[in-house]
Nucleic acid binder design. Structure first.
Lengths: 146, 146
DNA sequence: CTCTCTAGTGCAACCGGGTTGCAAATGTTC
DNA sequence: GAACATTTGCAACCCGGTTGCACTAGAGAG
């Protein structure tokens, strides 16, 4: 299976023209098991310009190709939408932010407990939920005793 | 009851010298029903310098007088610890971030569902949990039909 | 194939919030 | 009151995200 072609299909499905740069960004996201920030993508691809990645991610976001995670790291992270059919991201899972290596991980096994519909105060309307656990990831735990 | 004296007690209990500026910051936090960001505090007090507030908040954080909430707004917010006895913030409740007025609210009635102890992958250690619901707050809902 | 027009890209500058260095001001101790 | 430590305000800095603009690449018409 050609991952290059897969990525192109995703872009076309989102009605985004598959330029070379966009394919690179999408492939980096697809190859990563965890959500990536703008600066992480910048590091991964030394050829692409920061502003190009930024605009590419913004475009992807608007076309529901990626969705945005706010871990508590002051910089948003992006991951490919698993469910391109839905207009909004329904693949809700818990994220883990490592305070040591500053990476975010997806905990796909843990569903986000949803309290938004049942018990929000009157007048409040929810559009998204972020459930982020901070701590030390497995790799950093094993490497440092601290 | 003198709130001024209450605030001083809190500072002294945290072993922080109660200077005039610190009392102002602590009173602003105490008077607010919701967590405030650095810039919000800057707006509320036109006399205090940005760096003074910043250092005051950092000091408060280190002395467990305030704790920090990461809503998804790229800037941390601070609220007075309810339980100064505990070394860490055990008063865990859900926060709501309004995407329209960019304020954060405490939903004290909704406890944060805790999944950290039961189901974290092996090797992961949690230190804090952020559960943030984003959407439109009641006031903005009633004001705009959109 | 070439021209034209639009979309995409790289560069550099900008911006805003957090952060830091430093010197003046304030407070504390003897 | 002198000597010292702490706190504060100002200004500069830093860093990541964002934007303006000119150049380039690509799509479509003829």
């Amino acid at each position: 299976m050609d991952t290059n072609q897969q990525v192109i299909d995703i872009l076309m499905h989102g009605e985004v023209r598959p330029t070379a740069n966009r394919i690179v960004v999408a492939q980096l996201l697809a190859a990563s098991s965890r959500p990536l920030s703008l600066s992480e993508l910048e590091d991964l691809s030394d050829t692409l310009d920061k502003s190009t990645i930024f605009r590419t991610l913004s475009l992807f976001r608007d076309h529901h190709i990626v969705h945005v995670i706010d871990d508590g790291s002051a910089c948003p992270r992006y991951e490919l939408c698993v469910c391109p059919e839905h207009e909004d991201n329904d693949d809700r899972h818990v994220h883990f932010y490592c305070e040591h290596c500053h990476k975010s991980f997806c905990l796909h096994d843990i569903p986000v407990p949803d309290v938004s519909n049942l018990s929000l105060p009157k007048g409040y309307r929810a559009t998204s939920i972020n459930y982020v656990i901070k701590g030390i990831c497995a790799e950093c735990s094993s490497r440092h005793i601290e």
